[in-house]
Design a protein around this nucleic acid. Structure first.
Length: 497
RNA sequence: GGGCCCUUCGUCUAUCGGUUAGGACAUCAGAUUUUCAAUCUGGGAAGACGGGUUCGACUCCCGUAGGGCCUACCA
C-alpha cells in the first residue's frame, strides 16, 4: 500500500526548505488502499452549514470504511484568510463532534511543494509561462465570452524564453482535443470536452500557487482516496483530473454533494435565519441533532428518520446521496432537536441551559443548577431548542417575591385568594412532597371545595410562576419544593390588592 | 453567451419498468387536559411540461421550461 508522506502542518516555518520536496508515485490502482477523506474549508469567515454537512459526509464515509478523516485548511488566499476563521472551523468541527483523525494541514505551508510541482510541469512541457497583462486578459475574456468559448493564452505555444523577465503566471497546458471524464460517485459519469476547459493558472505572478493546483497536490500527498465536496467544484474536477493525469498520479474517487439551500430555494444565506455552524449552536441545537438532521438532508436510509451515529456510519454510502440541492427546513430541524433534548441527560441539559442563560446576560445564582435539575425533566418534552428549554425553566429560576404579570395578578380575586389560602394549608400537610402525592392533594382539595381543578389551577399557576407559564401543577410544586412553593403562594396572598 | 449539474406531497425523502406512489416534518380535524406544550387518532397533500421506447414508465431516451454551479492571478 501507499503510505501518506509526512506533511508539514502548523505554522510552516520550514515551508521553504527545498530539500522538503517529495513525490509519491501512485500510478497503480489499489482498491485496498485504506479510505482517506478530507474536508478542506478556506478560513475566510464563518463555517457554512453546508460545509458542516460535507464534513459529516466525509466523516461518515471514512468511519464506515474504517478509514481516516482529515482536515486541510485552504489558506492560500492570503488576503482573505484569517487566524480567527481558522479557529471558527476548528471550533465548529469540535462542536459537531467531527474531529479529524490528524492535526490539520495548512495549505499555505505547503506552497513550496506546490511551486515545485508547477515548475516540474513547466519543465516537462505540461505548463507554460503566460505573460498576458490584465488588460489583455480582460480583452480576451470578453472575446471568448462573445464567441462562447474558453479563454486561450497566445503564450501557450510560444517560445518560453520570450519575454522571460516580464511578470507572468504559469498556466497548465491542458489538451485541446479529446474529452475528460469525471466519474462522480453521486452525479454519475460527467463528460467534458477538453476544448471547453481553459488553461488554468497554477502559479500566480507573485509565485503563490492557486487553489486548483494546491488541491490536487495536497489530495495526492495526503493520499486522499475519496474527494467528497460541494458540487460547485464539479467543473473544477475536470481540470483537476487533467493535472492528475499530467503528473501520472492515481485519481481519487470524486463525489460532489449538492449545496444546501434556504427554505425559499435560494442559496442559504444570513437572511434565512442562520448560515454558520456557530449560530446553530447559539440557537440551542444539540450537535447530535445537527448530525442526524444534516445526514438526513440529502441522504436517506429507507424510512429511518431518527438514528444514532453508529447507525448512520453503518448505513452511509456517498453513492446514496441525493443529486439535487436540499432546502433547510427549520420545522424538521426543531423536531429532530426536540427528540434529542428529550433523550438527553438532565445534567448536561442543565449545563447547556446555564450557558445559554449566561450568553443572554443573565447573572447566575448559586442554586440555579439544583433548580434547573428539578425543572428540566418536567419541561424538556416541549423544548425545541436549549433556548426554549431555558425559557420553560424560567418559573423555577424566578426569585421570591415573584413579580406577577398583569394577567396573573388579575386571576387573584377574593374567591381565588380564599381558595389559595385554604389550599396552602392543605398542601402544608403533605408529608411526601412529590408529584403523585401532590396531585392527590390537589384533587382532594378540588373535591372538598366542590369545584374542578380549573377553578383555581390558573391562579395557582400564576402565583407559582409569576407569568402563568409553568408546567403541570403537581410537577411544578414538586420541582419548586415545599418551602419555595408555599412561600410563593404566601407572597402572592400577602400582596396588597 | 458557453459548459456542466439538478427537477416525486409545502419541505426532507422512499421507489431503482408493473405499488391504492410509502415514511417524516409541517398542516387540517377530532380526542385528552390544571394554561401552553406534549401525547393519541384520523384526513388532505406529489412524479415540472411535451414527445418517444415498452404490453406497461415516476423510473430509460430526446426536447422544453424552471433552478443551480462554473466560466478569477477566490476557494
Amino acid at each position: 500500500m501507499i503510505r501518506a508522506p509526512t506533511l508539514r502542518t502548523g505554522d510552516g516555518r520550514d515551508a521553504g526548505a527545498p530539500g522538503a520536496i517529495f513525490c509519491v508515485e501512485t500510478t497503480m490502482s489499489d482498491p485496498d488502499r485504506p479510505v482517506v477523506t478530507r474536508i478542506a474549508p478556506s478560513p475566510t469567515g464563518s463555517m457554512h452549514i453546508g460545509t458542516a454537512r460535507t464534513a459529516l459526509f466525509n466523516w461518515l464515509y471514512a468511519r464506515h470504511w474504517g478509514g481516516r478523516f482529515l482536515l486541510r485548511i485552504e489558506d492560500t488566499d492570503r488576503e482573505r484568510s484569517t487566524e480567527a476563521a481558522v479557529q471558527v472551523i476548528l471550533d465548529g468541527l469540535d462542536w459537531l463532534g467531527l474531529e479529524p483523525d490528524e492535526p490539520p494541514v495548512f495549505q499555505f505551508a505547503r506552497a513550496e511543494r506546490h511551486r515545485q510541482v508547477a515548475l516540474g510541469l513547466l519543465a516537462s512541457g505540461r505548463a507554460y509561462r503566460c505573460y498576458m497583462t490584465v488588460d489583455e486578459l480582460a480583452a480576451e475574456r470578453e472575446i471568448a465570452r462573445a464567441e462562447g468559448r474558453a479563454i486561450r493564452s497566445p503564450w501557450r505555444d510560444r517560445d518560453p524564453l520570450q519575454g522571460s523577465n516580464l511578470p507572468h503566471v504559469i498556466r497548465f497546458k491542458g489538451p485541446i482535443e479529446g474529452e475528460t471524464l469525471v466519474d462522480d460517485l453521486i452525479k454519475g459519469p460527467v463528460l467534458f470536452r477538453n476544448k471547453e476547459l481553459d488553461d488554468l493558472v497554477i502559479l500566480r505572478s507573485d509565485g503563490v500557487p492557486t487553489y486548483n493546483l494546491a488541491v490536487v497536490v495536497d489530495d495526492h500527498d495526503m493520499a486522499i482516496t475519496h474527494v467528497i465536496r460541494g458540487d460547485d467544484h464539479l467543473n473544477n474536477a475536470a481540470r483537476q483530473t487533467l493535472i492528475y493525469q499530467a503528473m501520472g498520479w492515481e485519481l481519487p474517487a470524486f463525489a460532489h454533494v449538492p449545496l444546501i439551500h434556504g427554505p425559499d430555494g435560494a442559496k442559504l444565506s444570513k437572511r434565512h435565519g442562520a448560515q454558520a455552524v456557530g449560530e446553530f449552536a447559539e440557537m440551542g441545537f444539540l450537535p447530535e441533532a445537527m448530525r442526524n438532521y444534516l445526514a438526513r438532508l440529502g441522504w436517506g436510509h429507507g424510512d429511518d428518520e431518527l438514528f444514532s451515529d453508529d447507525q448512520a456510519i453503518a448505513w452511509f454510502d456517498v453513492r446514496d446521496v441525493v443529486k439535487a440541492p436540499a432546502r433547510l427546513d427549520w420545522n424538521k430541524l426543531h423536531h429532530v432537536n426536540n427528540h434529542y433534548i428529550r433523550i438527553a441527560d438532565d445534567e448536561r441539559l442543565t449545563r447547556l441551559v446555564l450557558e445559554s442563560l449566561a450568553r443572554r446576560g443573565r447573572a447566575s445564582e448559586p442554586d440555579d443548577e439544583a433548580r434547573l435539575l428539578a425543572a428540566i425533566p418536567l419541561v424538556k418534552d416541549g423544548a425545541k431548542t436549549i433556548v426554549e428549554l431555558a425559557d420553560l425553566c424560567a418559573f423555577a429560576l424566578a426569585r421570591r417575591p415573584l413579580v406577577l404579570t398583569e394577567k396573573s395578578a388579575s386571576l387573584l380575586n377574593d374567591e381565588t385568594r380564599g381558595r389559595l389560602a385554604r389550599l396552602s394549608a392543605a398542601l402544608a400537610e403533605a408529608h411526601d412532597w412529590a408529584p403523585p402525592d401532590l396531585l392527590e392533594r390537589l384533587r382532594a382539595f378540588a373535591t372538598a371545595e366542590g369545584v374542578g381543578l380549573g377553578k383555581f389551577g390558573g391562579a395557582l399557576r400564576a402565583v407559582l410562576s409569576g407569568d402563568g407559564s409553568a408546567p403541570d401543577l403537581a410537577g411544578a410544586l414538586a420541582a419548586l419544593g415545599r418551602e419555595e412553593s408555599l412561600g410563593r403562594i404566601d407572597d402572592a396572598l400577602s400582596r396588597s390588592q
